[in-house]
């Protein structure tokens, strides 16, 4: 999982290494470090923004270790579903079990339907919907799209995807 974290360091040498070590020690992969020496906090500390990949269950131990070392953890952001896309559906969307269509994505574990907007002009007429898919990565998003395509093709629904 990708985690972003805002921390604050004391303004003395060696603090940055002190803050990064626990992430590596627990198998994390550091993606970005923004060390803003010129932007001190009112209490004279230096703000640092970290982004790293780490197994979710190890996060508490990393935070604990940082605190032991005198690093102040200000904010932790977990962004599980990073990638998203909008697709359109045209056809008998609701009457062909829209719940099942959504479930086909949600049950993957790596992708979810996070937005759905349906226009239904009349009972017998075809409806149109925009569906927002989110997934944990680009590859997973593409896989979710393929699953959705297969699901709606079976139901005779037209799917329109972004170029």
């Amino acid at each position: 999982m990708e985690i972003s974290m805002d921390i604050e360091l004391q303004d003395i040498p060696g603090q940055l290494v002190l803050a990064l070590e626990p992430v590596s020690d627990f198998g994390g992969n550091i993606l970005s470090v923004l060390h803003q020496r010129d932007k001190k906090t009112p209490s004279g500390r230096i703000p640092v923004q970290l982004v790293f990949e780490l197994e979710e269950k190890r996060l508490d131990r990393v935070v604990e270790r940082l605190k032991e070392r005198g690093v102040k953890v200000v904010r932790i952001g977990k962004e599980r579903l990073k990638e998203s896309m909008v697709v359109l559906l045209i056809g008998h969307i609701v009457h062909s079990d829209v719940r099942d269509t959504i479930d086909s994505i949600d049950r993957t574990g790596f992708a979810e339907v996070v937005g759905l907007s349906v226009s239904m002009p009349g009972v017998a007429k075809k409806s149109s919907a925009s569906v927002t898919l989110s997934a944990i990565g680009k590859k997973e998003l593409e896989e979710a799209l393929q699953i959705l395509k297969r699901t709606v093709n079976k139901k005779g629904i037209l799917i329109i995807t972004p170029i």
Binding site: L88, I90, S117, S119, P121, K126, S128, A129, S130, I160
Partner: peptide, 12 residues
């Protein structure tokens, strides 16, 4: 098969 509704949703 394209509907005016679909074009509206796309626009949104």
């Amino acid at each position: 098969e394209i509907t005016p509704d679909a074009l509206k949703l796309a626009d949104d």
